[in-house]
């Protein structure tokens, strides 16, 4: 099959001795078949394995949370033992019908696990980046924020402005200067963008 050509469910893409089956494909009777409609992509493997063949869907697909994957969720309910949240995005796709997640007290941070207090880590309405630990019980996914890069990314203060992270456990409102405790996700430079004028202001300051 040609790369980038269109395939439809049930179409035979090649032998399983020729390709490794990737996303959107399945193996049956020693052949790789497409299971969704989309364009065929091939990736050669440098370590000598068979080239990977997968099908890229034409449409934006709904993803479901996978173990080990990163999800974005919104806090809904706090108790002293755990925090409940709605998973609002998985791998960049927006969910119309949210999956529910739970962050237990022990999974909030990696150090000083026994000193964690949920009320000092999250508040209802916070947007949190978390990792899926397990599929949990039938009701909700088990999530964890026990990594530096995971935790609260957006939190609003009492007057409704987004707060600025001060430390790994503290955020401050830029207007009221009120400080609140959060399990803050470490800001990652690749995700930070400076507006043009603020950049020039920064350089001016440094020259003065």
């Amino acid at each position: 099959m040609e790369e980038n050509s269109i395939c439809i469910p049930g179409e035979r893409l090649g032998s399983s001795e020729q390709y490794q089956p990737g996303k959107g494909t399945y193996v049956r009777h020693g052949f790789v078949f497409a299971s969704i409609a989309g364009s065929i992509k091939k990736e050669s493997d440098k370590s000598g394995n068979l080239p990977l063949i997968h099908v890229q869907s034409i449409h934006t697909k709904q993803h479901i949370p996978q173990i080990g994957g990163i999800v974005i969720c919104k806090m809904t309910q706090l108790t002293s033992a755990f925090a409940k949240c709605k998973i609002i995005s998985v791998q960049g796709s927006n969910h119309t019908a949210a999956f529910r997640g739970i962050i237990r007290k022990e999974d909030v941070r990696a150090t000083n696990r026994d000193k964690v207090e949920i009320y000092k880590s999250f508040r209802p309405g916070d947007i949190v980046v978390a990792r899926v630990l397990s599929l949990g019980d039938a009701l909700c996914y088990l999530l964890s924020t026990a990594e530096n890069e995971l935790g609260v990314v957006v939190a609003l203060s009492e007057n409704g402005t987004a707060m600025i992270p001060l430390a790994h456990d503290q955020m401050q409102c830029p207007i009221t200067l009120l400080k609140q405790f959060r399990k803050v996700a470490r800001p990652q430079s690749k995700h930070i963008s400076f507006p043009e004028n603020s950049k020039s202001a920064l350089t001016n300051e440094s020259t003065v």
Partner: peptide, 8 residues
């Protein structure tokens, strides 16, 4: 919907 199926 892009849901995986064995065939049509």
């Amino acid at each position: 919907a892009g849901i995986a199926m064995k065939d049509y």
